[in-house]
Write a protein that binds this DNA or RNA. Structure first.
Lengths: 212, 212
DNA sequence: CGTGTGGTTGAAGTGCGTCAAACTGGGTGG
DNA sequence: CCACCCAGTTTGACGCACTTCAACCACACG
């Protein structure tokens, strides 16, 4: 658990609770699945995770991408509304909900912390919904790049841990449109796609201007 | 406050806390506004409320419609991410966040209640996002009608408290598409639009089948 | 009876999806 | 070392669903 921290830089801001065990997952491996009973909550220590839902007819919707420090699986009903998978090698802190409930019964601060995590998730989801409802393809891709850069790296050049299909399913587009839009932004000189997974943001201010 | 309950049937399941004062708002009147500091949380006692965001260029996105019993304004950061307005005459219970914080410090059950409210909101928002990302106009309108009927009324005929523009801004469509889609569903015999605001669901099962 | 707000409907335009094909880089085996 | 393969990606041509533009309609209110 502390070992997991040691080799990464920077370490997650803080662990949710001084409890739980760290687990490891390979890329593409399932962490929890849509419909499963929620008995464990996870905090991502390193790597990157996607959460997604499968619709009735097989269409996929990526709910969010998660970075170290994020808490996953803190959900309302008794069962998970999303599945979660690593997009790279992933280390997580697994915390039984029973433990969480027990601790928060005596620690109002933890309760507030959990509330704040859920509220933050709500806010992210509402941003996401607003984007899907009202922005065009260029605006969506620009918003995605800006958001990703802020959350993962804060640098202006970085590697994307997800495929074009993941991005498309997150943005409500097809891989074709995502690919075309990235090419388009490159033609405009706003970004460099140095390799399919490696991107440099050249005019972050202009990208931001595109996000409405 | 109890007076507010008395004249409505059924009354909201339960009040959040035995505190706060009831306030009244006219249709279209603001309850709180995007960007304002969160100093009060509201529980809707009667009427119907829309929460919405304005994007940079004036486009509007309706985050959700709220029914009696719903809690509004429980948000993460220090400020509201949405504005809230009544769509009809509205009665709300206004609870200072300071009160809420004080009570929840000594009542872990309240903390869990708040967490569950926020998680439910998150789940609704994720459903909403998935719909916006992946469903077509007919599916969106069908999903909206089914959801609304379940939450407001549970009957198969009801009045919509919102305008076509509200629905369009909620579904990520234009009023034209919403109107056309309703006409289309009526032509199929799935619904009756008895007046512009009054709808009857004739084949709820088939509507449900459209929602993927 | 005139005016205004909200809703419906038609015709034309367009942004993204679909279909189809070519490309790229990494891995494997001959 | 090269031939091959394969998943992921890019790009083009075309079609369609939804938007846009433009009327017209319905009902409430002064």
């Amino acid at each position: 658990m502390t070992l997991a921290f040691a080799k990464f830089d920077p370490p997650p801001a803080q662990t949710l609770v001084p409890a739980g065990v760290s687990i490891r997952r390979a890329p593409g491996e399932e962490i929890f699945a849509q419909g499963e009973t929620v008995d464990t909550v996870y905090q991502l220590l390193s790597g990157a995770v996607r959460t997604y839902r499968l619709l009735g007819d097989g269409r996929r919707h990526v709910c969010d991408f998660h970075v170290p420090g994020d808490v996953l699986g803190l959900e309302a009903g008794g069962e998970h509304a999303c599945s979660a998978e690593g997009m790279a090698d992933v280390i997580l802190l697994a915390i039984p909900v029973a433990t969480l409930r027990r601790l928060s019964a005596h620690d109002p601060l933890l309760g507030q912390r959990l509330l704040s995590i859920a509220s933050n998730g709500l806010q992210r989801s509402q941003n996401h919904a607003a984007m899907l409802a009202r922005l065009g393809a260029v605006e969506r891709v620009a918003a995605f790049l800006i958001d990703f850069a802020q959350r993962f790296d804060a640098d202006d050049e970085f590697d994307l841990p997800m495929t074009r299909q993941d991005i498309a399913d997150y943005l409500g587009l097809t891989i074709h449109t995502v690919s075309r839009t990235l090419s388009h932004l490159q033609d405009q000189g706003l970004i460099d796609v140095r390799a399919s997974r490696r991107v440099r943001l050249r005019r972050q201010d202009e990208l931001l201007g595109l996000c409405a």
